[in-house]
Design a protein around this nucleic acid. Sequence first.
RNA 1: GGUCUGUUCAUCUAAGGGUUAGGAUUCAAGAUUUUCAUUCUUGCCAUAGGGGUUCGAAUCCCCUACAGACUACCA
Length: 508
Amino acid sequence: MSNRRVRVRFAPSPTGPLHIGGVRTALFNYFFAKRHGGDFLLRIEDTDSQRFVPGAEEYINEALRWCGIKIDEGVAEGGKYAPYRQSERRAIYKQYADQLVASGNAYYAFDTSESLDELRKEAEAKGNAFTYNYENRNRMVTSLTLSQEEVQTRISKGEKWVIRFKMPENEEVKMHDLIRGDVVVNTSTLDDKVLFKSSDMLPTYHLANITDDHLMEISHVIRGEEWLPSFPLHVLLYKALGWTENMPQFAHLPLLLKPAGNGKLSKRDGDKMGFPVFPLLWKSPEGETSHGYREDGYFPEAFVNLLALLGWNPGTEQEIFSMDELIQQFSFEHVNKSGARFDPVKAKWFNHQYLVQKSNTELAELYQQFLISEKNITAEPAKVERIVGLMKERVNFIHEIWEKSAFFFGKPTSYDAASVQKFWKADTAAIMKEVIVVLDNINQFEAHQIEEKLITFINEKGYGMGKVMNALRLILIGISNGPGVADICEIIGKEETIERINRAIESI
RNA sequence: GGUCUGUUCAUCUAAGGGUUAGGAUUCAAGAUUUUCAUUCUUGCCAUAGGGGUUCGAAUCCCCUACAGACUACCA
């Protein structure tokens, strides 16, 4: 088993956009597979015909691609074990359900969902829960209680049926989890799960999942903690099918929790708290849209990095990781057992780190694209590069450069009242008129020159740096904080600088 | 209700029986700066509670509390 090729799968169901918890699961699978030179497969678990959402599968593919995950085998990529979409594998499953019935590990049940609902309600009224298990199954309409002929006629008459697992009574199931260690559960606390349904002739998650993992030679199942309760069922299914020999190893990842309050992260949290819970923008078939990290301006590397550190740590103090480093350093020993609360504030910090790391040239290209597509502005590359260099330390996102420095591309439309109060004194207009003269006399209108001339002027007149510079900045950009005054002057140019000063003298 | 899992600063986490319980984010203060940001320095803040075991417990065991997941002909 130890020298078995590592093969992992990410197996989402296309019931909507993949959320960041799912992305993290995919990432951990990917890290682990690549760490051990193995394969990463994407399998689409669409055995619930009721909940299928158009576009969800494309979304999943695009999200993984954006994160930098390379799929070795999958719906689009193909592979030796194709097809990778469960709805296209429907012919495969029935025989295994039959096998379980034949070996006495499963049985046909003819209950209607209405009658089951009723039983549940009755039990609830008495203060307990109805469990379809060893205690109750003999009272139900099943192949256990009916004669073989009767079962056959009911089936051939087209009566609806399901195949249920016959959960053994009072057996200890011992399981090993790579993250949590040994877990033991008594089968009497478990129920007879539905494995196959006649309504759409498809298996449920449990059967499909075990069958495909076995057939696809999956070596490690890495999934969310929400699957822990069905772990014993899965172990029992492997046993009943005679596949214990090469059953995969299991690892149940801790959950991603809400930033505040209780419970696991859900779609609503993002909308409420103003951060995305989805990797990409999502438009539901009903027309509802949800924010995505990509569209909100996150770099994929930052997104991957921040997700990797939720529930895993390197055991060192390193916080910034490339995909390769993540792959090299990942191990289950450093995966936490407890749920991790998502922190939107730190998410921004990660993006800032990546933004600052990028070269001005690279950033300029990105900002250039933003200017063209969002603002319809075509700017000189040199000017854009200058701007991003000045702004990068002050922002977390590319779009924030615009939000904080649109003044490089247009005159201020108003002057911040509090700053005017603070920096615009009785003699300011007069001083600014002198400043215009100083600036006008600079031949090489470049930051160094401008700063030098301005400082000499201020010193000669004895005005005080703050007094002049702060007022000048207010005039040029409308607010009191931003890049150095000389830099601003250079970027907008002599003519524009003087024009803005004149305008301010007249209008303030 | 039942089953399972978990619990270290506000948040992400380190410390695998012996450290003043470390780092990061946030927040606060100071220095630097023409403002802001950066940078630097500093500060605040934690082992859920109670019992054991041990010379010694965040770490091992038990109980309690709290939290989460699951409990569908969903995945």
